[in-house]
Write a protein that binds this DNA or RNA. Structure first.
Length: 270
DNA sequence: CTACGAACCTGCCTGC
DNA sequence: TGCAGGCAGGTTCGTA
């Protein structure tokens, strides 16, 4: 479900409700996620104070006095902040309960998400291989150009490879390529430095704008407060195959690239 | 090393 | 109304 803007929106929604508070319970009704929630983790966490809630890639990191919780939303995961005990519904896998009664509930119908406890998150195998954050300065045109030189596959696949840069999922890869006028199937190593610089700016721009608008709600995504995201109205290509290009009115084309729907303007994107 | 397809799941929508 | 089939915002894994 979520890409970086949706995860960041979730982080901003939850952080003020849990930072500085102490865990009084971690309830697990259904441990089956991408990786099962292990019973001993709840014991490690209860009694600990939350020092901060940060994000790395699409992972939320709950920093505790000792260790961290790594949370991923997968395709259908969702955190909700509730004022107190509420009857759980289907797929409400787990609750975090804090010393002031605040309850943070995790729901994930498709179970591609995860809730993991670790003593050193930066050394966790799911984290160590990750590339740079797209919104940080280290991700620039020169870096992208140097990385793309080694690759012969399509640019869209490269953008969605977390070893190159994290947080760029299917929606925003499509949108950033449209904004830059680059064809999604173009061979990565055949993109100039100047275009890499513009592509980096487009990625940063589309992600920042989506964060400001609370993410993109297509079907089931809602923020931690229950509000939908409003970036959907800004989508130029994603979900618009067959409809006219917003720039030149040519009907947008659609192809499948390693299983992911890819939409582009055959006239504006080369 | 890169590149690609399959796999992991459930819910929802479409078409017969 | 029912049911089969296809599709979905992610990531890992196995295989060329």
């Amino acid at each position: 479900m979520p890409e970086l803007p949706e995860v960041e929106t979730t982080r901003r929604g939850i952080a003020p409700h849990i930072e500085g508070k102490r865990f009084t319970a971690w309830t697990v009704r259904d441990a089956r996620l991408r990786w099962p929630i292990e019973p001993q983790w709840t014991e490690s966490v209860v009694g600990q104070r939350v020092q901060a809630l940060t994000r790395r890639s699409k992972y939320l990191v709950v920093h505790l006095e000792e260790g961290q919780i790594l949370a991923h939303l997968g395709m259908s995961g969702q955190f909700r902040v509730l004022p107190g005990a509420t009857v759980p519904e289907k797929h409400d896998h787990s609750d975090w309960v804090f010393d002031d009664g605040t309850l943070v509930r995790y729901r994930d119908p498709r179970r591609f998400g995860s809730l993991l406890y670790t003593t050193d998150w930066q050394q966790h195998p799911l984290i160590t291989h990750l590339g740079p954050e797209p919104l940080e300065e280290i991700f620039d045109g020169a870096y992208l150009y140097q990385q793309l030189k080694k690759r012969r596959g399509p640019i869209k696949s490269a953008l969605m490879d977390a070893r190159l840069v994290v947080g760029v999922g299917n929606i925003y890869a499509n949108e950033a390529l449209f904004r830059t006028g680059i064809h999604p199937l173009r061979a990565s190593h055949r993109i100039s430095l100047a275009r890499c610089q513009r592509l980096v700016e487009a990625i940063k721009g589309v992600l920042s704008q989506a964060i400001e608008e609370g993410g993109t709600t297509l079907r089931d995504y809602v923020s931690a407060t229950g509000a939908p995201g409003y970036f959907r109205v800004s989508l130029a290509v994603y979900g618009r195959a067959g409809q006219p290009c917003v720039q030149c009115e040519t009907p947008l084309k659609e192809v499948r690239l390693s299983g992911r729907i890819t939409v582009y303007c055959p006239r504006c994107q080369r």
